[in-house]
Design a protein around this nucleic acid. Structure first.
Lengths: 168, 168
DNA sequence: CAGGTGGGTTCCCAATGGGAACTTACGCTG
DNA sequence: CAGCGTAAGTTCCCATTGGGAACCCACCTG
């Protein structure tokens, strides 16, 4: 029986049903960067083979990865990100940004990004899709959306009302 | 003994050491939205009291949350996000965005955001901090940074080289 | 034909998580 | 002033998960 987040009516909880463990985000990062085979991932991550098998299967079940044979006889596979899986790289990017800022030593971040659009080394920042301005935590307030349910998140509902009372 | 990601030299892995489980991101979301007390979180999330205690302590140990007494005799506490913890809301936001796009039914997302800067209901998007353009997965290529170590991520190193060979 | 590689599966053991009950300390209410 | 409610945990038992190492099978290469 699930008392876990999976049946909650909440986007964050539902996403965590897919990437809410220690390994799935790292698997997605590896696949995104081109480490796409079972043994390569296992060596690269130091994950146990059993758990890697389970995680890959779960990610495939969630249609985040797909398994593409690059040889039959013997059967050999590449794991690829689906379109849905590609969108999960934004979560990985957020994790990386946080780690770069708070968790690396003086040697600096292990990985940087070059934006192909402008050619510069860049950091990803979060912006408002309406005005294009950069958004920091606190620059936006939550609003109950069409799918909001009072029943799952009773305390949450009250907390949001309280926030609005402050802002208004 | 840890064979887990925590001692790897990788920003994503290190971040996962803090939020790499089913509950921590939800706890951070709740605190960010104003659900800041033990019982309120426990009811709101449906998490077991034991695990909630463990997670809160871990988040405090990582300096993501702080415990502020709002009453002594009897001792009662609010949990607050530190500055570091505030930055983790970007990870939660990424999870929410993904869930909103791929995992909610036709009833629509449960939570929206109003950007205080422009007043509009907005979605967070990822932009390049150099040119300000929106960045989609694939619009940026990874580059080895100052802290890159060949030894942890041997396959990764080769994969990045392979990517560069493609782009150049 | 021995050894290596890719992609797993199996087994055992230790750690983790859920659930429910128990605790402590106070404040309120009849 | 007895009893109930609330906040914040703690404790116990049991089921599930994860790590590690070994095993397996099909093929390729020297």
């Amino acid at each position: 029986m699930h008392t876990s987040p999976e049946d909650r009516h909440c986007s964050v909880a539902r996403s965590l049903d897919i990437v809410g463990d220690r390994w799935s985000p790292l698997i997605i990062r590896d696949v995104a960067l081109g480490v796409s085979r079972f043994d390569a991932m296992q060596r690269d991550l130091g994950i146990s083979r059993k758990v890697l098998t389970q995680r890959l299967q779960a990610l495939i079940d969630h249609e985040v990865l797909e398994k593409v044979a690059y040889s039959e006889h013997p059967p050999r596979f590449d794991y690829r990100l689906t379109e849905k899986g590609n969108d999960l790289t934004m979560v990985v990017l957020a994790l990386q940004q946080f780690g770069d800022k708070w968790l690396v030593g003086e040697e600096g971040p292990p990985l940087l990004w070059r934006h192909l659009g402008c050619g510069e080394l860049s950091s990803p920042v979060v912006c408002c899709d309406r005005c294009g301005e950069q958004v920091a935590p606190g620059d936006a307030v939550p609003v109950k959306g069409p799918g909001f349910r009072e029943e799952d998140g009773p305390g949450l509902s009250a907390a949001i009302d309280a926030l609005h009372a402050l802002v208004e």
